[in-house]
Amino acid sequence: MINVIAGQILMGISLVFMAIGIYSVLTFHDFYSRVVITAKVDTVGFITLIFGAMLIQGFSFFSLKLLLILVFELLTSPISTHSIAHSAYTSGYTIRKEVRAEGSGE
């Protein structure tokens, strides 16, 4: 019983992380800061989600499958981030300073 509650708390934390990631994509204007923030927040949220699901399920084939998915994610997530940032860099994006503009988000 205790592991189900702990797992659900972990999944809740991961949802908070992902929500903040989406918020950052919507509010920042510079491409590079979006890439840097989402790359981190996404991975943390995903790992926490997987750990929460593993806690709920206990030690079984299901959580071993989740572990395989986690390894795959850890290998591929930085590569996809890198290729997006790399293509932006080679096509000549420059860094824009974040402006603290109110009301520009609408």
């Binding site: 992380f17 903040i20 918020y23 950052s24 509010t27 920042f28 510079d30 590079y32 800061s33 840097v36 923030i37 981190k40 927040v41 991975t43 943390v44 949220g45 860094i95 974040e98 603290r100």
Partner: peptide
């Protein structure tokens, strides 16, 4: 990294460079 990123998003302290 995740906690730092969240902190930076909420305080909007960014100084991006290459």
């Amino acid at each position: 990294a995740g906690v730092q990123a969240v902190y930076r998003v909420l305080t909007r302290k960014l100084n991006v460079g290459i």
